[in-house]
């Protein structure tokens, strides 16, 4: 028998600190698989966010920089400008990319920086204990929206991917999800495309992943995936945005 599915080389074979059923582990693996398949491990420089994925560099076996909360795209911009031959990507959560780092996100996108952005949208702040994120859905209960998010009080879920797609500097935006193995395979294709775009100097590419946070959604792992499929995708429709 041949091994048909194995651990990617670019992912260290250690247990992560993520909760059971957390989507970060899948996203980390898909990126590592992509890096292996494109043969770019020795050229890749990752920029990790502040949030649950802050120590992503412990798991990926390639060069990595930590960035201050929200500043990943400013850090990545400079790394790529200094080293245009390296492949530079950021890995950011919804709070990092769409709240505290909105300015850096929009302007790096608008400059058309030749970067790849992997955006994990789980509609919540995981690391700090389940507070409202910019992408938290209406009625969704969080630590800071104990009665559910209300539009009149908290505003609406922020569709940053759609906003970014309006910018001339942005070349590729796709929203994918992890609610089933088939969806994970689709997500992988989008991630690969976003890396290929950088290799081909296409410009700013972003993949938004609807990813589960069972712990702070108060759901089982499977219920979380079903919630993405049945509820989250209504607010954040899947597919190519640009």
């Amino acid at each position: 028998m041949n091994k048909v599915f194995s651990h990617p080389k670019s992912l260290r074979n250690i247990a992560t600190h993520y909760c059971a059923g957390c989507g970060h582990g899948i996203a980390h693996r898909l990126i590592a698989e992509t890096v292996d398949e494109l043969g770019i491990r020795e050229k890749v420089i990752a920029v990790a966010p502040v949030g649950c994925a802050v120590i992503a560099y412990e798991y990926w076996d390639f060069d990595c920089s930590e960035a201050a909360h929200g500043r990943a795209l400013a850090v990545a911009t400079a790394i790529k400008r200094v080293r245009p031959d390296n492949i530079v990507f950021t890995y950011q959560g919804d709070g990092d990319l769409a709240a505290i780092g909105t300015n850096e996100t929009i302007h790096a996108a608008n400059r058309g920086e030749n970067l790849t952005v992997i955006f994990i949208n789980n509609a919540i702040y995981g690391m700090t204990g389940g507070q409202m994120a910019p992408t938290t859905l209406l009625k969704q209960k969080t630590a800071t929206t104990p009665n559910g998010r209300e539009a009149s009080f908290h505003g609406y879920p922020l569709k940053i991917s759609e906003m970014l797609a309006l910018l001339a500097g942005v070349k590729y935006v796709e929203r994918v999800s992890f609610f089933s193995p088939q969806q994970v395979i689709k997500a992988k294709q989008a991630i690969k495309q976003a890396f290929l775009n950088q290799i081909n100097n296409t410009g700013f590419s972003l993949v938004e992943i609807l990813s589960p946070c069972p712990t702070y959604w108060g759901k089982s792992s499977k219920e979380s995936l079903d919630w993405i499929r049945d509820v989250m995708t209504k607010e954040f429709p899947l597919g190519r945005i640009k």
Binding site: N2, K3, P8, T16, H24
Partner: peptide, 19 residues
């Protein structure tokens, strides 16, 4: 079946598939 659906969805990269 060796379809690897389990491995694809595993968040902790615990599963390897042989066929």
């Amino acid at each position: 079946l060796g379809c690897a659906m389990c491995a694809v969805i595993c968040p902790d990269c615990c599963i390897e598939v042989y066929k």
